[in-house]
Simulated scan of single mutants.
Amino acid sequence: MGPVSQQSTEPSAEPSTSASPTLLPSPPPAKRRISALPLWRLPTPGQARAAVPGLLLTALGVGVALLVNRMVPGVSALIVALVLGAVLTNVGLVPESLRPGLRAAVKTPMRAGIVLLGLSLALPDVLALGAPVLLVVLGGVAVTFLGTLLLGRLLGIARERRLLIATGVSICGASAVAAMNDSAEGDEDDVMTAVAIVTLFGTLAVLALPTLRTTLGLDSATFGIWTGASVHEVGQVVATAGAVGAAALAPAVIVKLTRVVLLAPLIVAVNLWQRRDRPIPAPREGHPPTPERARPPIVPLFVIGFLIAVGVGSAGVLPESVLGPVSVLQTVLLSAGLFAMGTGVRLGALATSSARSIALGALASLLILLVTYTGLMLAT
Rank of each mutant, 00 (worst) to 15 (best):
L119Y: 05
G344R: 06
P297R: 09
C172A: 07
L23I: 11
T193Y: 02
V345I: 09
G130R: 08
L42V: 10
R49I: 10
A351P: 02
L307C: 14
S353Y: 03
L216V: 14
L366N: 09
Q274K: 09
L257T: 05
L146A: 14
T227D: 03
D125V: 02
M192P: 01
L154D: 04
A112Q: 04
P281Q: 10
T343P: 02
P279D: 13
A48K: 12
P53F: 07
A336I: 12
A351C: 05
A131T: 13
E233P: 01
F339L: 11
V268S: 03
A252M: 05
G54I: 05
A142E: 03
S170I: 09
L216F: 15
L88H: 02
V75P: 04
S314M: 13
P38A: 11
A194G: 04
L329F: 12
L98M: 14
A48M: 13
L200R: 05
G92A: 06
L88Q: 01
S8A: 14
A51F: 09
S175Y: 09
L378E: 01
L93D: 12
L57R: 02
G140M: 08
R213D: 01
Q274I: 11
L117M: 15
R49S: 12
L149C: 02
L266Y: 05
P132T: 11
T58A: 14
M377N: 12
L138D: 03
V310S: 01
N181G: 07
V68T: 10
F302E: 01
L207F: 15
V91R: 10
F306P: 02
L56K: 04
N271A: 06
I79A: 10
A19R: 08
T227M: 03
A122P: 04
I368V: 15
S354V: 15
P27D: 06
G324L: 15
E233H: 05
A364N: 00
L78M: 13
T58E: 04
A205S: 14
V115T: 07
P265Q: 08
R162I: 05
L334I: 13
L347E: 01
V4I: 13
V126W: 11
P210M: 12
S353V: 02
A81H: 06
